[in-house]
């Protein structure tokens, strides 16, 4: 492997200021984070940034040559839209390097109020065709699109040739529903969703109940969504990754998708060839230990790929959800 590449930007997650500093120190080119409210898609208990913490974190990153991208990527609803606009105002005031948006109302507000503010289109927007992406670019001045995890590498290559903005692609971490940005499964059980409230399966509705045989049931609201045998690995307690009984089946099965993590370490050269200029690691809800491990490993891998060396990311398998990893739709549409 002697081919060399332009080095893509490594975009890393941070759920806390400590995680942000960890990511920067581990070699992140950019860190994305959110405020401690419903304006972003990881609105989890005890997570995220106050305005003051964000200001200090941006200073820390900028002093070390790293960027901070503020996720304001849930969907604003009337009459609460001001909360999202306030987040955009804050990002502009604190000189965040970009705001990640999904809602066209939020994007419209940002581009009209702050024409110099860089906007990235969130994966939550689900823009997966050149026509959709070009529309966002023309109407809202989007500089980068985060592609949904439903496209193969050749499809990304084809899109790249037809759009005027940068492409960011997820390369590691939790892999969500195939129709991204429009999941309302937890609304059915808990009344909130990632897209509208920034939280999927809020911890306040999750319970783990141990049984005498050593198994553990995971419940969300009034529903049991999985039951793990004593030695069985678990995943996130979300409806989409639960196992369910149905008539005609003797055993519970994954009706939507399995707990599995995306890991595209082997596809990095292909992604860069396809025009991906930013590689995104998922996991704002994960610990700083995880952030350190994954960012360090991907930093080495990106540098190896750029220099024409073969990257080694074998250690990352230990950090995957459910102990399983996949290349998802990037490798084949039949990945399940």
């Amino acid at each position: 492997m002697n081919e060399t590449f332009a080095k893509p930007e490594l975009v890393c997650p941070a759920g806390t200021p400590a995680a942000l500093r960890t990511a920067v120190d581990a070699g992140a080119d950019a860190v994305y984070c959110g405020l401690a409210n419903e304006t972003n898609a990881r609105n989890f208990a005890g997570l995220n940034f106050t305005p003051q913490a964000l200001e200090q974190s941006i200073a820390y990153a900028h002093d070390r040559g790293a960027k901070v991208l503020l996720a304001v990527n849930s969907f604003a609803t009337s009459p609460r839209a001001q909360l999202w606009f306030d987040a955009v105002d804050l990002a502009a005031r604190l000189r965040a390097d970009a705001v990640i948006v999904a809602d066209i109302g939020v994007a419209s507000y940002a581009v009209s109020r702050y024409p110099g503010l860089r906007l990235h289109l969130s994966v939550q927007a689900g823009a997966s065709s050149p026509e959709a992406i070009r529309y966002y670019c023309e109407e809202f001045g989007i500089s980068r699109v985060v592609l949904p995890r439903i496209l193969t590498v050749p499809e990304i290559d084809a899109i790249h040739r037809e759009i005027p903005c940068e492409i960011e692609a997820f390369v590691f971490g939790n892999i969500g529903m195939m129709a991204e940005g429009r999941c309302s499964l937890t609304n059915y059980v808990t009344g909130v969703s990632t897209n509208m409230n920034g939280v999927c399966s809020p911890a306040s509705d999750v319970r783990y109940v141990e049984h005498s045989d050593g198994s553990t049931a995971a419940t969300l609201g009034d529903f049991e969504i999985d039951c793990y045998a004593a030695e069985e690995k678990t995943g996130y307690p979300t409806i989409c990754k639960g196992r369910y009984m149905r008539p005609g089946r003797e055993e519970p099965y994954y009706a939507f998708e399995e707990p599995v993590s995306l890991n595209l370490s082997a596809l990095l050269p292909d992604l860069v060839r396809a025009g991906v200029s930013a590689l995104k690691i998922e996991g704002r809800q994960r610990s700083r230990s995880y952030v350190h491990s994954v960012v360090s490993a991907y930093r080495r891998a990106v540098d190896d790929v750029a220099a024409g060396r073969t990257p080694d990311l074998s250690t990352l398998a230990m950090l995957t959800e459910g102990g399983k990893q996949t290349q998802g739709a990037y490798a084949t549409k039949k990945w399940r």
Partner: peptide, 9 residues
């Protein structure tokens, strides 16, 4: 990594 330790039980 508490999540990984949780996933692994």
């Amino acid at each position: 990594d508490s999540d990984a330790l949780f996933f692994s039980r």
